[in-house]
């Protein structure tokens, strides 16, 4: 290797070093530390006892921990996000991206919930769902639909769905904004050409706009799925995983293990599993969105 090349490599390394140090210090090191702790039985304070993979074995086999149920709930939320939340966001983005009257105010209004603190949103929806004076039950009573009035967050059958609705309400604007940016990026010339060829508005959206914004749709799906897998704040405020663990998700189980049961090893094992699952789903979604030819090959 020439001396000049070596100097170049050193220069590149030196320039990358600050970013690399931040990346390792902030992202890689905590993950590695969690992985390390996950092999121990530790209450967070006293001596640590190495137990190998026992935390993982217990995580997947113990009914008392209920990790499978929590994971199932997170996947259910992810499915609702992808098949309900994102289509709504896409619909808004396509309509607003067309340049309708009042485009800007609508954009701001739909985006507003994203700016509000999740705890505030949680408190707001707690009041809406309150079985005694909540807006929802009051509206049902006023409409004479007393039989539909319900303890929405207290019934194992409705709690998970009741938790999802505020999530949808909060993040629909976020995904809409991402997609709106994509829709606005579609060249007016392509739209015009399609119209000249006789395509109506829905055909333009279906055959021109949506394929063009596919990379943004991929990002939205990844955000929606990984966001659901690690969802925590709204659930913590609204139900804290209850009633009867009906709204438990991996994050709430992790918090219970770490801070209520003092099982730092098990909590770390859950954290590691969440990281692995988020990466796996992100890779799976990226693979699913890859362009393929008619024979299914890239």
């Amino acid at each position: 290797m020439k001396k000049k090349d070596v100097i170049n490599y050193i220069n590149v390394f030196l320039f990358l070093l600050p970013a690399l140090a931040l990346f390792v210090g902030i992202l890689i090191a905590p993950i590695m530390k969690s992985l390390y702790y996950s092999f121990f039985k530790w209450n967070g304070m006293g001596a640590m006892e190495f137990i190998g993979l026992k935390n993982y074995t217990e995580l997947f086999t113990s009914k008392a921990i209920g990790f499978w149920k929590a994971l199932g709930n997170a996947c259910f939320l992810a499915a609702l996000s992808v098949f309900i939340q994102l289509p709504i966001s896409l619909g808004f983005a396509l309509v607003l991206g067309r340049g309708i009257k009042g485009e800007r105010p609508f954009l701001s209004i739909y985006f507003m919930p994203v700016l509000i603190s999740t705890v505030v949103i949680g408190q707001l929806w707690l009041k809406i769902y309150n079985p005694d004076y909540g807006l929802l039950n009051s509206a049902l009573w006023k409409l004479g639909l007393d039989s539909l009035a319900h303890t929405w967050l207290g019934d194992t059958k409705t709690a998970l769905l009741a938790v999802f609705i505020p999530t949808l309400w909060q993040y629909v604007g976020y995904h809409m904004l991402l997609m709106y940016a994509g829709v606005k990026g579609v060249s007016p010339d392509i739209r015009e050409a399609a119209r000249i060829d006789g395509a109506n508005e829905s055909q333009v959206n279906r055959y021109i706009v949506i394929p063009v914004i596919k990379p943004i749709l991929k990002v939205s799906v990844i955000f929606a799925v990984t966001g659901s897998l690690k969802s925590f704040d709204l659930i913590y405020v609204l139900t804290n995983g209850g009633p009867l663990h009906a709204t438990e998700v991996p994050s709430t189980v992790m918090i219970e293990m770490l801070f209520q049961r003092n099982r730092y090893g098990m909590g770390s094992a859950i954290a590691v599993m969440m990281i692995i699952l988020c990466f796996a789903f992100a890779l799976l979604i990226s693979w699913a969105f890859k362009e393929r030819d008619i024979y299914g090959k890239k």
């Binding site: 769902y129 309150n130 079985p131 005694d132 303890t151 929405w152 967050l153 207290g154 019934d155 139900t239 009633p243």
Partner: peptide, 11 residues
């Protein structure tokens, strides 16, 4: 109270 399952102690 059947509603109690969704209420906090303060409520």
């Amino acid at each position: 109270d059947p509603s109690g399952i969704a209420l906090s102690n303060d409520e």
